[in-house]
């Protein structure tokens, strides 16, 4: 049986933490999205001809969304589980009658909620700069939800694993950001030489960006089904890893 009251307690505790930093949480994505549109959408974008039939400003929306979703989910997720270890309040989570699953739902749920709000804010900001016409809104929302949940969970695991601040920022910095930039966020992979196209296909983030592009404009680097299966597969693998970690008695003091 899932203890819903405990899940709720964790969820709202985390959401309150977010509320305390609300300004920073809203302003920074709006600001960075606006900058991207001013620089890449208008200034440089006006010199770039259309890609796959859409203007460059429109083309970068799914990638920008993915970039923010991934980095924010991972860093917020990892912070939420690392922080109690750092300030010592972990003792309470360890002493409380809560299972690993309840902890995951509470923490990951809160982080994912934050990411989804962020994603919607970015889409709203983007619509100020370009005419945004989302061809498959439900599919788009599906990818938004799945990406937010999956990478919040990824962050959660990193937070459990990390025992110092360096490790905490390492993964977003050296893994997530490069994968997003190399995943066709700001270009179409058929603009690359053939060998690099092949190498790009090893990057899982490419499949996710492609899924987003499809749901926005029906343009994509890989088939939409490949994208859907990829995100579900990543989520499944992460769930298994997390449960294994909990079974081993995660960060318990020895």
């Amino acid at each position: 049986m899932i203890n819903l009251l405990a899940v709720k307690a964790i969820y709202f505790h985390e959401m309150n933490r977010t509320r305390r930093t609300i300004l920073q949480s809203i302003i920074s994505p709006i600001l960075s999205t606006s900058l991207y549109f001013i620089i890449f959408g208008s200034a440089i974008g006006s010199r770039i001809k259309e890609i796959d039939g859409v203007t460059y400003g429109m083309f970068i929306v799914p990638g920008l969304l993915m970039l923010n979703l991934l980095t924010q989910s991972v860093s917020n997720g990892s912070f939420s589980t690392y922080f109690p270890k750092f300030n010592g309040t972990i003792f309470e989570l360890q002493a409380a009658p809560i299972s690993g699953v309840e902890m995951i739902i509470g923490f990951v749920g809160a982080t994912a909620t934050k990411s989804i709000i962020l994603g919607l804010l970015i889409i709203a900001t983007a619509s100020f700069f370009i005419d945004l016409n989302i061809l498959h809104p439900f599919l788009m929302v599906f990818f938004l939800l799945m990406t937010a949940i999956t990478f919040s969970l990824f962050g959660f695991v990193i937070g459990l694993w990390a025992d110092n601040f360096e490790k905490l920022s390492l993964i977003p910095l050296i893994v997530i950001t490069p994968l997003v930039f190399l995943g066709g966020s700001f270009y179409s992979i058929n603009m690359l030489p053939e060998i690099w196209q092949k190498i790009s296909l090893l990057n899982p983030v490419l499949y996710l960006v492609s899924g987003f592009k499809y749901s926005f404009y029906e343009i994509s680097d890989v088939s939409i089904w490949t994208s859907i299966i990829t995100i579900l597969l990543i989520l499944l693998i992460l769930i298994v890893i997390t449960l294994l970690i909990f079974k081993k008695g995660y960060n318990l003091r020895n």
Binding site: A6, A9, I10, H13, N16, I98
Partner: peptide
């Protein structure tokens, strides 16, 4: 966090 919220949180954690 405020004292009240934090004490409430503990009650919630214990279901």
């Amino acid at each position: 966090e405020t004292v009240f919220d934090n004490v409430n949180y503990s009650r919630g954690l214990w279901g």
